[in-house]
Amino acid sequence: MQDEKTLVNRAKEYDQEAFGQIYEENFDKIFRYIAIKIGNRMEAEDLTQQVFMKALKAISSYKWKDVPFSAWLYKIAHNQVVDYIRKKSRQPETELNEDITAIEDNPYKAAELKVELEELSCALRKLTPLQQEVISLRFSCEMPIAQVAQIMGKKEGAIKALQYSAIQALRKHMVVENNA
């Protein structure tokens, strides 16, 4: 934690190497966190980049509070997703088509990945916001329960109970969609 604090302090001084390290360590995780929430990889790429640009602009106001720095990044990402979904929900219904061949060389694999991600994202949106958050942090970022609890500002026991109900609900919605 002390090392991370030093790294963040260097980033606050706009140290390129420190920022580079933070970027590399967190980019893919933040991307996955966003991708499973919105179900579209290409849009998730753009939103992920916006998260880091926002973090860069706001780093001077960041205060170390003995929680992982990534908690702050996830908060920015969460706000980005909320903003994105709100905008989408106000636009006329359009299919979130993405050019899957632009993502993978193998179109079959790409199609499979796309369907899986969309199914998960669709099922995830039927959960409560807190359940969504647990699943996103736990499965997209493979985060230990203690860290999820820290980021969500709740006790570990509460997160375990939330995780249980979230997986139950997720299973129900995934099964329903697969059978439909």
Binding site: F31, A35, R41, L120, S140
Partner: peptide, 10 residues
């Protein structure tokens, strides 16, 4: 299944 579906990269 969720973990596999979430295993995407940019």
């Amino acid at each position: 299944a969720s973990r596999c579906a979430a295993n995407v990269t940019p």
